Computed example of a mutant assay.
Amino acid sequence: MACAAWGAQAAEIELLGDRLFVRGMLDGSAFQSFTDQLGSGKVRTVVFEDSSGGTAEAAGEFAGAIRATGVNTEAKGQCHAACAYAFLAGREHRFGRGLQVNGLLIPVSARPRQEELAGRWRGEGAQKTLAEFIAAPTEADAPVTPPAGAPRERWQPDHGVLFTSTPTLFGRIYNSFYCDGTQGRDMSRCETLPDADPYKLGVLTP
């Protein structure tokens, strides 16, 4: 289950019909272009394609813009770190179709307990979880405001809960894993999480 590495170049924005493609790292450099496209009224779905890295602050900005416009989101290929939290902000959020392996790695500061998974990323739960990673208080009108007294952790590369969708002759197979960060890009070293169906957890929309 090794995933191919990809470059961490800054995000590129491309509008194709009513689908706004975002490729590369969400570091905030393309945020103005992103909001300009969303504001055009032409976008129905934001497609994150092979996006990794980025900052919690950038994730909050992209997520806030997506929630404000009520568009859907789609993850095609690998969507890790900042991309994952932006993806969860979609009104409906799904994996892309095709022959590619889709992977969504959501950063966590520690291994979540089984009972925490049910509401951790469902609805506003994703916003609250992201707020734990914001380094400093944001402005009053910022998309994500850290709750008072909440720990402000910095996410680590490749540390999080990974949801994958792999195409087979008989349809797609979904798996969930906890990756502690020591595995690098070799996701076969991650721990399988039982009873962590991404649809039941609200990570993917039916």
Rank of each mutant, 00 (worst) to 15 (best):
F87E: 02
K128T: 12
R113E: 15
R152I: 05
F95Y: 06
R154W: 11
S176L: 08
H93G: 00
L162G: 04
G98R: 09
R111Y: 05
T145V: 12
H93K: 11
C83F: 05
H80D: 14
P107G: 10
R94M: 07
T182S: 10
T166V: 15
P167C: 01
G103H: 03
A81D: 10
Y178T: 06
P112I: 04
I134K: 05
T129G: 09
I106V: 11
P112F: 01
A126R: 02
L99D: 15
I134E: 05
N72Q: 07
A126T: 06
E124Y: 11
G96H: 03
S176N: 03
K128V: 12
C83K: 01
A150P: 09
A140I: 11
T164N: 01
G96Q: 08
G90W: 00
R152S: 12
A126G: 06
N102V: 05
N72T: 02
G123A: 11
Q78G: 14
S109F: 14
F163E: 01
R122P: 07
P151G: 02
A89K: 01
V108P: 01
A86P: 02
A131Q: 07
T182A: 13
E153L: 11
G70M: 09
A150Y: 07
L169S: 12
A86N: 02
K128D: 13
Q114G: 12
W121Y: 10
P107K: 00
R122G: 09
A81R: 06
T129E: 13
V108A: 02
R97F: 09
P137A: 07
Y85G: 03
W155N: 01
G125I: 01
T182Y: 13
D158S: 15
F87W: 05
G98V: 01
K76P: 02
D158F: 15
R154H: 08
Q156Y: 14
T166N: 06
I173G: 08
A150V: 15
L104R: 05
T73E: 04
I173K: 12
H80Q: 13
A118V: 12
G125T: 05
D158A: 15
D180L: 04
L117E: 03
G181F: 09
A75D: 03
L105R: 00
V101I: 14
D141W: 07
D158I: 14
L117F: 02
R97H: 13
N72Y: 02
L162F: 02
L99R: 15
V144M: 09
H159T: 15
P137H: 05
A89Y: 00
H80S: 14
Q127H: 12
G77H: 11
I134G: 04
A75T: 08
H80L: 14
E92N: 13
A135R: 13
S109T: 12
V144F: 05
G181A: 09
S176T: 09
T138P: 02
F163A: 00
H80W: 09
A140T: 10
E92G: 11
L105E: 02
G149P: 03
Y85S: 11
